[in-house]
Nucleic acid binder design. Structure first.
Length: 331
DNA sequence: GATGCGTGGGC
DNA sequence: TGCCCAAGCAT
């Protein structure tokens, strides 16, 4: 059933967005589909403040998909820096190649075509279509899910896994796109970005700023007395995991101009041994990021077997390759 | 559908 | 300090 005050909620949240939205560079008028697509890849599980400088450098260096596609994928991985989840850099590069070869260098505008690109899933396809091409499609991300859970369903948090009911709810809540603005924007486009921003700035996961919320009076969660979550989010282990070792190995590879010897990557955790290693000594200048990466890797108390496993997973993900000269980022 | 996948900041 | 979280995707 439709929410009794839905059109009021549409107005309140989109009006709030117009006065409170952050001025992000991929939101300005001149930001094209590629700029938006790059931002969406980087923003997958990574906060805006950390994306900003990397996005600026990326767009400066690769202003078009073809520019990125023309470079070895290792350059993309290095430029990705410390954003995390470096597989995203591989996929963005791969997507740039597909766009260059199959879409005449232009980011496609339909959710279906976007979905076929590497690294583009349901959310990213919808987001690019909505924000870059003004397609009035349903967008569902973690912010939007949380706002819906509170505002409509009266719960502190959405379910741990997105389900069909959430998609159905998001579809019901999407405004009609009967009238278009001068730039082709419909209320549906504005609604999607506005709800996301509300979730990011006000209706946050922890310590929501309900006193600043434009729809606090309509909020089912507030009306219910803001009950606690009905489940405990399960934290991801980090210390001592393969992921930690992978991350440290990737940092070494990013900073290595030459291929790295396999035995050095797998060297047993021992700072004394590491510090006496000729390669590491060579980079032992003060503040040298390459040296820092080596020290970090060899300070990890990881078993030899675990290091083998981590390295194998880098190979199978395509983040590292074995050449006759040693291990390096993929060509 | 449950897992694995980085990184760093905030509380 | 340790834990939680951040515009998900692929398998």
């Amino acid at each position: 059933m439709p929410h009794p005050e839905l059109s009021r909620i549409h107005r309140e949240i989109t009006a709030w967005y117009r006065t409170h939205a952050r001025a992000l560079p991929w939101r300005i008028e001149s930001a094209g589909p590629w700029a938006i697509m790059v931002s969406e890849f980087m923003l997958q599980q990574t906060p805006v403040v950390r994306v900003l400088p990397v996005w600026e450098a990326w767009m400066e260096r690769w202003p078009t998909p073809a520019a990125l596609a023309a470079e070895p994928v290792a350059e993309a991985v290095k430029a990705w820096g410390r954003l995390g989840y470096p597989r995203r850099a591989l996929r963005l590069h791969a997507a740039a190649i597909v766009i260059t070869e199959e879409h005449d260098g232009q980011v496609p505008g339909s959710p279906e075509e976007l979905l076929a690109l590497p690294g583009v899933g349901t959310y990213t396809a919808a987001a690019i279509a909505c924000f870059a091409f003004k397609v009035p499609t349903v967008v569902v991300d973690t912010n939007i899910r949380r706002v819906h859970a509170r505002l409509i369903s009266g719960k502190a948090l959405p379910e741990q896994n997105q389900n069909a009911a959430e998609l159905a709810l998001a579809t019901e809540l999407l405004p009609e796109s009967s009238s278009k603005g001068d730039d082709g924007t419909t209320l549906a486009n504005s609604w999607n970005i506005a709800v996301m921003e509300l979730g990011a700035l006000v209706c946050t996961a922890r310590s929501p700023r309900c006193e600043e919320c434009p729809v606090a009076a309509q909020c089912a969660w507030t009306a219910a007395g803001r009950p606690e979550p009905h489940y405990k989010p399960k934290g991801q282990p980090w210390h001592g995991t393969d992921r930690q070792v992978r991350g440290a190995m990737m940092a070494v590879l990013r900073h290595s101009s030459a291929p790295v010897d396999r035995d050095e990557l797998l060297m047993v955790p021992d700072l004394a041994i590491a510090a006496s290693n000729p390669r590491i000594l060579r980079s032992a200048r003060q503040g040298d990021p390459a040296h820092e990466a080596w020290i970090t890797l060899h300070a990890l108390p990881a078993l030899a077997e675990q290091r083998e496993r981590a390295l194998d997973s880098l190979f199978s993900d395509g983040l590292a390759q074995q050449t006759s000269l040693g291990i390096s980022l993929p060509g």
